[in-house]
Design a protein around this nucleic acid. Structure first.
Lengths: 112, 112
DNA sequence: TCTTATACATAAGAAAATTATGTATATTTG
DNA sequence: CAAATATACATAATTTTCTTATGTATAAGA
């Protein structure tokens, strides 16, 4: 919520990465997984997540499959073939970005 | 220019960090330094930089000092006392953020 | 029963960038 | 020497991306 306003720009890549790892996930599951993986650091809001998922779908990177579990709706997303290719690219970009940021903020660490 | 659109949100912290390191810098110098440190990865545009500097100054984190070198104008910025304190906080936040991103993208690396 | 959790969605507004201009001087290159 | 590039600032219009605020609906727990 109020904490880190820093992950701007990388939400799409985070989604793609998780789907690559997990095969398929639904929206709510993604928010919980990110919270878990970052120990509460990153809280993806619904207002950011759902439009992002819709956009990735519209771009042809994700496929949807609707399911009903316990009488509740779930929309499972998974990578398309194109999505898998894009994920590789975007992950490389993001890793390069992280490395650059590290270099700026703390040049001592990374030898690269 | 066209490359990385990923550093969103961390520009202010980058500026503060550089000023902490270098003592004082002028705008153009900052863009060049960042380009150099990131081997061309991050290109801070003027449209992003100058408004950011003005805002940091308005917030009381930066002081300005105008100079004329080779008949050309330069505005040297440096941290105020308050700016120095804030820099510590924001750097800690940014490092935590970088660590979180690393954990998401490449859990293998970091043990943390 | 009321609150919290699960599960989706969208609209209004804010924040932070990009892109496109504009001004002006200095230096380099053809 | 003229033209292009580099240095140095600035701002306006637009776009992207997020937060905040709502809204609907079911399930589970206190």
């Amino acid at each position: 919520m109020g904490n880190s306003k820093l992950y701007k720009g990388s939400l799409n890549t985070i989604i793609l990465k998780l789907l690559e790892e997990q095969g398929k996930m639904y929206g709510y599951e993604i928010t919980q997984k990110v919270k878990e993986l970052t120990k509460g650091e990153l809280n993806i809001t619904e207002g950011a997540l759902y439009p992002a998922l819709h956009k990735l779908e519209a771009e042809g990177l994700l496929d949807v499959e609707v399911a009903k579990v316990d009488n509740r709706l779930r929309k499972y997303y998974k990578l398309t073939e194109q999505g898998e290719k894009e994920t590789v690219n975007r992950l490389a970009e993001l890793e390069e970005f992280i490395r650059s940021m590290q270099n700026l903020v703390n040049p001592d660490w990374s030898i690269n």
